[in-house]
Computed example of a mutant assay.
Amino acid sequence: MLPAGSRLRRREEFASVIRRGRRGGRSRLVVHLDRPTGGGAPRAGFVVSKAVGNAVVRHRVTRRLRHLVRPRLDQLPPGALLVVRALPPSATASSAELADDLDSGLRAARRKLSGAPVKTGG
């Protein structure tokens, strides 16, 4: 479980991060990262829709993502807002695969947030 001060709870917070934040998409999940809004601890939230699976599968994916995000919150700037959106392939992914996608998505979103040029494949 994430500490209460580290969780996004309101729908408006999720919508704001998804709309204004920078995105790092991968095959199993999409990471949305928004600029720090001030001080305080970074906060995170999770979106796992019914497309991922039934309630048991969705809760399992959420628990695994929460476990992976907890140690990574310290690496984010103070006040940063993070939303991790699970895609249907996350239901069958291993924890190691989810961790790789999360790290890769966070790197991409942080790079876009800092304004550095983003390399495109091809």
Rank of each mutant, 00 (worst) to 15 (best):
H32E: 02
P3W: 10
R11W: 12
F46E: 00
G25P: 10
V83C: 04
D100I: 03
R35A: 15
V56M: 06
D100L: 07
V47M: 09
D101L: 00
R35F: 11
R19Y: 08
S104K: 09
R72I: 05
S104I: 03
A41D: 15
S104R: 11
S49Q: 02
S49F: 01
G24S: 07
R111E: 15
L98C: 06
R9C: 14
H67M: 05
R10C: 08
G45E: 02
V52Y: 00
P88N: 05
R19A: 15
L98H: 01
R11H: 13
R66H: 09
R22K: 14
V30M: 07
D103K: 02
R111W: 04
S27A: 14
L68T: 08
D100F: 13
V61A: 03
V69E: 06
T62C: 13
S90T: 04
R64A: 11
H59M: 03
T62R: 15
S90E: 02
R11S: 13
N54F: 03
D101K: 01
V47N: 00
R63I: 04
V17A: 11
E12T: 13
P77V: 02
A4Q: 15
V17R: 00
L65C: 03
R10E: 15
I18Q: 07
G45L: 01
R70S: 11
L102V: 10
L76K: 06
R23Q: 10
R110N: 05
V118G: 07
G25Q: 11
